[in-house]
């Protein structure tokens, strides 16, 4: 993976994505080489099943292949976009495909343009090791709600039920956890 264990600050992927319009298989191969490992790790973490994870990754890259031209840079980096597709499809797979309405919406459901905010833009460059460390440093009760929601695909009422705690507590822990993560990641950015 050319970018190592994290996304690049600038986004050379956008140029690769543009080449997909002309069905440039080499561009798809390069995108896979850059992000396939992260996509696979995320799919595996969510689904917990190697075969399902591979299917999810294949679907995500084929989505790029077919619809890469619709990428909107204002919504964030290509890598983030790809990983969002991976996560959504992995959660779909986790919940089954029996026509059930997905109750959980993906992270980018709202129009949350990271590039509106220079600080947020800088945070896009944070690598996986730091995210893992920041997550590990959370108080267990906060880490649990984040993991159940983000990697388990549970809505907050489901998290509340699973953990046997009030809805308001779950919402509060989710917010506190993300604020704490933000603080840790900002501190690393400043130190860097």
């Amino acid at each position: 993976m050319a970018t190592g264990d994290g996304p690049a600050v600038s986004d050379p992927d956008a140029a690769l994505l543009a080449r997909l319009v002309t069905r440039d298989e080499a561009a798809l191969a390069e995108l896979y080489d850059r992000h396939g490992r992260a996509a696979h790790a995320l799919a595996l973490r969510v689904t917990g099943n190697a075969e399902t994870a591979q299917d999810v990754v294949q679907e995500a890259f084929l989505a790029l292949w077919r619809r890469g031209h619709t990428y909107q840079p204002e919504r964030g980096a290509v890598r983030g976009w790809l990983l969002t597709v991976v996560r959504n499809r992995a959660i779909d797979a986790l919940r089954g495909s029996g026509g059930q309405v997905a109750r959980v919406l993906p992270v980018d459901t709202l129009v949350l343009a990271a590039t509106d905010n220079p600080e947020a833009e800088a945070m896009q460059a944070v690598d996986g090791r730091r995210v893992r460390a920041a997550l590990a440093a959370l108080p267990p009760e906060q880490r649990d709600v984040v993991e159940l929601a983000y990697f388990g695909g549970l809505a907050y009422p489901e998290v509340a039920e699973r953990m046997g705690i009030p809805l308001g507590t779950v919402k509060s822990r989710m917010r506190l956890a993300l604020e704490r993560l933000r603080g840790s990641l900002r501190a690393w950015e400043r130190d860097a």
Partner: peptide, 12 residues
């Protein structure tokens, strides 16, 4: 934005 970074958390 912070939540999106969680996608990077799993060990490669």
């Amino acid at each position: 934005t912070v939540a999106r970074l969680l996608a990077e958390a799993p060990e490669p």
